[in-house]
Design a protein around this nucleic acid. Structure first.
Lengths: 210, 210
DNA sequence: TAGATTGTTAATCGATTAACAATC
DNA sequence: TAGATTGTTAATCGATTAACAATC
């Protein structure tokens, strides 16, 4: 039924368009165009139209796109018109920062639980949520719906944690540890790699002769 | 002199290969192959060889690559055989987490200063570094070498902060705010966008029918 | 020498861009 | 109607993969 394979970058761009559409909605603007979206989001009008074309027709020729309509359409495509239950594994500085970050809840990603190995941390409360011991993870997943797991542990323990997550049946992982996780094909992993981004900047500086 | 344009993804992969080479160095392994590197890093042997070929010849036909030699070569290509001076702008939860993260210093990225707008935070000490008021930023950059700026402020203030960074003459920005920054062409920006990564996972779940 | 593995070229694949008919 | 902007096709561009001669 679903036709051509859709490039991941197209989804990422759609998510960026969506942010801009939210802004427009707030300002009360009713109509926009592929050109306008492109200018603000650093894309091109052809690209915007192509990205949308993967999923259907959302505009009116000669007119443009209805802001609210397009917002709703993209929200539904990505799955942001529903909520997702996520768990955070690792209650270090970064894990704590993620729990405190309100941007998640705004987009429908609800942090339902936090886990850590360190006995010293277990029982502590972050943003109203009690840190649970990692040993109780499988038990927790059995009893509760968990859509995604966020791994925020050290590189050393990341693979072990990933194995645990996979075994529990969770199919989506957001990984902050600077390692390539080994997971089955039906488990989807995204890596947020701060170091590598800094390193490409370093390369840029070197290549420009700094 | 430098020939063909090198794709950014190739640099990212080289950074991943480098991590693995460091592991091999630690275990004392002397020789490796494009096949071995590929298996561990989720690449292919042809890709590994192609990525290296952009920069020269580093292996020995029929034998493979000297682990230490290749490690040094890639380090030098990316610019990780020297140190970089970075500043963090934004002392919220995430900014604080980045300052505490030891992975930066390990790779030669030294956090030299932290800035924030909130008067309440100015003067506080994070990891031995005093938070400075943003008003003193330009002054600081004039007096100290700063290679890169890390923007960890809210989406609302990110563009204003980026303007300030650009005006100060810094040419490389790592942006954590969920906005598309508008910057001159000679300023290089990398975005670490946690939300968009979660959103592509959401799309994956939706498209697989969850 | 036989086996292994590189460096590189050519073929393939996939994504972006340009162009334009359709249509408001 | 004239001007604007979509949806879509075809052309272009760029990155990945396959294949193999070179060489240890």
């Amino acid at each position: 039924m679903k036709a051509a394979k859709i490039p991941e970058v197209a989804i990422m761009r759609l998510a960026v368009y969506l942010r801009y559409l939210l802004q427009l909605k707030k300002t009360g603007q009713k109509i926009t165009s592929s050109k306008e979206i492109a200018t603000i989001t650093g894309s091109t009008s052809a690209q915007v139209r192509k990205d949308l074309a993967y999923f259907g027709e959302f505009g009116v020729r000669g007119v443009g796109y209805d802001v609210e309509g397009l917002y709703n359409a993209i929200s539904h495509i990505i799955g942001l018109d529903r909520s997702w239950d996520i768990v955070i594994i690792g209650a270090g500085h970064l894990g704590g920062a993620l729990v405190s970050y309100s941007g998640f809840a705004d987009r429908g990603f609800n942090i339902k639980a936090i886990f850590d190995i360190a006995p010293a941390k277990v029982g502590n409360v972050v943003e109203g949520k009690k840190i649970q011991k990692i040993d109780s993870f499988s038990e927790y997943v059995k009893k509760n719906k968990v859509d995604m797991a966020v791994i925020v542990v050290s590189g050393d323990s990341a693979q072990k944690v990933a194995d645990l997550v996979v075994k529990s049946g969770i199919k989506a992982i957001l990984n902050f540890a600077p390692v390539v996780l080994n997971t089955p094909l039906d488990v989807e992993v995204r890596n947020v790699d701060v170091s590598i981004n800094l390193e490409t900047l370093a390369y840029y500086m070197v290549s420009k002769g700094s």
